[in-house]
Structures are given as C-alpha cells and as structure tokens.
Design a protein around this nucleic acid. Structure first.
Length: 429
RNA sequence: GGGGAGAUACUCAAGCGGUCAACGAGGGCAGACUGUAAAUCUGCUGGCUACGCCUUCACAGGUUCGAAUCCUGUUCUCCCCA
C-alpha cells in the first residue's frame, strides 16, 4: 500500500485530535513519507479504550502514507511516568512486564498493517536499547545535554515538587526523550505523537534530538478525552473497558459505546472512526431530528465493535442487546437454543446449581445470594426484591417466588435480572 | 524533645452516658418517568434462621445497671513551639 503521501494534520484537526503541535510539522508531513511513533505503557496485559486514541493516531498516519512505529515501554514501564499522577508508582517486575508487552503487541497488530508496503508498521521495545545502557554512559552521553532547570520547568514535574518525586520518576522524561533520539538515529523517525499529558516528555525528546544531532524532530499531541459529565473516559461501573475480549466481552464493549451521552457521541465518532466529515454531519442531523433513536451511538458502537471484534461478535452483541433491553418476554427467551443463549449471554456472570438441589426447590433469595453469590447478602436480595428490581426471565418476581421447572430455558438456564442493566445466569447441571 | 487537636460506616461529617445500627450531605443501588440519556420525584444503603436477634464508632483494657460518648494504656494522623 504505497498511497499518496499526505499531510494528515488537517484531517486530525477537524476531528478535534490536535492539541499542541511543533512548528514545521505539517511541512515535514507534506514533504515525504515520515516515520511517526507513539509510546504505549505496558502497565497491563491488554490495552483499553483509552489507548485507542494513540492507536488511531498511528492508523491515520499509516493511511496518509506515513510509517507508524508503536513503541512499548519495556524500559520506561520499569520507571513509571510521573505525568499527572499524584503518587509515586509501583514498579513492575520483568516477568509481568514481558507478559504485558506480549499482550499489547498482539492487539496492536490488529489495527496496523505490519506486513505490506514500505510504510508498514513497526513494533519496537525500548528495553532492547535501554538494557545495555550503563548508568555512567547514560548520564554522560544524555544527561549532559539537558539541564535540570529545563526538566524542572515541566508541568508534570512541577506539580509533584510539593508532594515529592523520586529521582527515578524525575528521570523519566530523559528516558522517553532518549527513545526519540534513538528512533531518530536508527529509524529516521521524525515525529512523535501522544496524549497531551505527554507534551512535556515529548518536547524533552525533540529538544534532545536538536541538541545532540543538530537535526529537527517534530511532535503533536491529542487532547485528553473527558466526558461531558466530568467522569473518566473508559470506565464503567464494572471497571475499565479493555480491548481483550476475555476481560471485556464484545457485548459489554458494544454497550459501552452505545451508552455514550449525546454530547460525547459527536466527539467520539470523530475520534474513534474513520467516517468522513459529511457522513458524520449527516448522522448528527438525523440524530438531532430523532434523538431517541440514538443514531450516533449506534453508528459509533457498530464501527468500533466490528473493527475490534469482527462482524459476527457485533451481530451477537446487537442480538443480546435487543433481548435484554427490547420488550422481549420469557417466551422469546425460551425459544433460544442453548447455543444461541450462551453466545448472547457470553460475559454475563454465571453460577451453577446442581440438578438435585434445583429439584428440591430454590427460593428466589437463595438463588440471588447464598447459592450463587450474585448479591453480597440475603439482606441485599431482600431489599432489591422489595423494591421490585428482580426479574426471572424478564418477569418481575416477589420475595416468595420459588424457581421451578417452567423457568428453565433449554432445560438448564435461568436468567435473573436486577434492574435494567444487570443480569445473572443460573446454570442447572 | 515540649505542648495541643483528633481517629465514627464507601467518602465528608454529626453525636459528648441510656430514646444509636448511629442526624445530615455526597456517592452507590433500585422504582416511576424516559431514549439502555439527562433532569426530576420516591425507596434502600452492617449481618441474620428478621415485628426479634447478633456484630460495629482506631486497638486493648477499665468505670457503670447501661458507653460511640467517661477513665487508662497502645497505635496512627494533624497543628504549634524547640
């Protein structure tokens, strides 16, 4: 895929993805194929929806004919980035780090083309070049070029001066800066991209390149994503939304996007899809006319879910959503085959009850807490029942309900619901 | 080293000898209304074999018929002086 080389900054600009940009960046991108890199922090063995933004930056770069480089911070992950963190971070051991790097690399390969064209993506690990660096060598060859005054003037450091920052974390920006220098020399990488919280670290890199080599390196950052209600993006009640389907099921992933507020949806569809400007504006018009249909959220959720998990998983998530949130009845549920049922409710919390026990009759309170652990206590079960929150196969039940044969779906499942959004499955075996 | 203040449930914060499973606010969960939204209104928010019982107010003892409340010691936090 040797496409035309284009300056993709304008594209990113209308999508609201440019916060800070160094002078001359656009000229460089218009001139020739440019290698651009983004760093990923290996703090977990999976990326989450927040990491999709830097991934999108790399994808945009590749689509514009430039060469994307994804850097995983095997070395920097051992240090911990102090940027906008209140406390000193825990250090990861090498084994965990390696596991995390493997997981992340696998996910990146789903988004970027690592195989074809002369702008194929590349994956690098800064541990590979940092591990040989001696402390003496580093402070002599690198530390000499950057003054402490310069490093202290960074926001990320300044904010920590009052509460305290270790030398380790203080040095972080130098390590990250060296990554840029290394990639500049070894891979002719001229551009670094990242979230705006990285601006300080990134400019240390461009500065280092300038002072050491006399050449020029470029950078831009993307605004950090905030939700219109002030909450943290990428989290739901049940925690972080991961890309790994074993951590966050495709259904939950789909639901995450579908539940975006109107205000956020407009922003998100620009950030996370490749839809063209006119398409998006069209969708927004339709959405404004009939907000209850949530056209934007549907389009957004569809685009991203298919890209990450594939069309089949997407269909399944939609089917599950219809059954769970549409006006489906116990009869609809009972018509499902065992296979369909399991696919739709993949990822929903389950518990097993033996057939013998079931035959003896199980009260709804036991079924919610003691026998299954879905709820923390009988008291909680009782309270929810009293407030009319509990349903068996989509039908509300009271405190005295006892599960029986006619509740079984495919002769083995029972769907319990708490409120509109929480479901549990009992498997009778 | 000397002096002072404090530690209450997820968080903030009342209570200062019985009426305290503990005011209130925030958060969370649920119900109604809705668009699986927002706003609003309502209920719930220690446990249980549940109109009663049990365990909780930093920890360990003590005084008392009775303690989150009083006393002693311990740990921790904050402030002032050196």
């Amino acid at each position: 895929m040797f496409g035309m080389i284009t300056n993709f900054v304008d594209e990113l600009r209308w999508r609201g993805m440019i916060q800070d940009i160094t002078p001359g960046t656009e000229e460089q991108l218009a001139k020739e194929m440019t290698a651009a890199y983004v760093g990923f922090d290996p703090t977990a063995d999976s990326l989450h929806v927040g990491s999709l933004i830097p991934i999108m930056l790399l994808m945009h770069a590749q689509r514009a004919g430039h060469k994307p480089i994804a850097l995983v911070g095997g070395a920097t992950g051992m240090i911990g980035d102090p940027s906008f963190k209140a406390d000193e971070r825990k250090l990861l051991d090498e084994e965990t780090l390696q596991k995390n790097i493997d997981g992340i690399s696998k996910q990146l390969s789903m988004f970027l083309d690592f195989n074809s064209g002369n702008n194929k993506a590349e994956l690098v690990n800064n541990y590979d070049w940092m591990k040989e660096f001696s402390f003496i060598g580093f402070i002599r060859d690198i530390g000499k070029h950057i003054s402490v005054n310069y490093m202290m003037s960074k926001d990320s450091v300044k904010k920590r001066l009052e509460t305290g920052i270790s030398f380790t974390e203080f040095s972080y920006q130098l390590l990250q800066g060296y990554d840029f220098l290394h990639l500049y020399r070894e891979k002719n990488c001229l551009l670094q991209m990242g979230g705006s919280d990285q601006w300080g670290n990134i400019t240390t890199g461009t500065e280092l390149v300038r002072r050491v080599t006399g050449g020029s390196a470029f950078a831009f950052t993307c605004p950090l994503l905030t939700k219109s209600d002030g909450g943290k993006f990428g989290k739901t009640e049940s925690g972080t939304v991961w890309l790994d389907p074993n951590r966050t099921s495709p259904y939950e992933f789909y639901q995450f996007w579908l539940n975006a507020s109107d205000q956020d949806a407009s922003k998100l569809i620009r950030l996370f899809t490749f839809c063209e400007k006119s398409t998006i504006e069209d969708l927004e018009r339709q959405h404004a006319e009939a907000p209850h249909l949530r056209i934007l959220q549907e389009a957004l959720a569809k685009d991203i879910t298919i890209r990450l998990h594939g069309a089949e998983e997407y269909e399944m998530a939609v089917a599950a959503s219809r059954i769970l949130f549409g006006k489906s009845t116990a009869d609809d549920l009972k018509r499902l085959s065992e296979k369909q049922f399991l696919e739709i409710f993949n990822g929903v919390q389950q518990a097993t009850i033996s057939r013998n026990e079931f035959e003896e009759g199980i009260g709804i309170i036991d079924a919610l807490s003691a026998k299954t652990g879905f709820l923390k206590s009988n008291g909680e079960a009782r309270r929810d029942l009293q407030s009319n929150a509990i349903s068996v196969n989509k039908e509300k039940v009271g405190e005295n309900y006892t599960l029986n044969h006619s509740d079984l779906i495919s002769d083995k499942f029972i769907l319990l619901g708490k409120g509109k959004k929480t479901n549990f499955i009992i498997v009778v075996e």
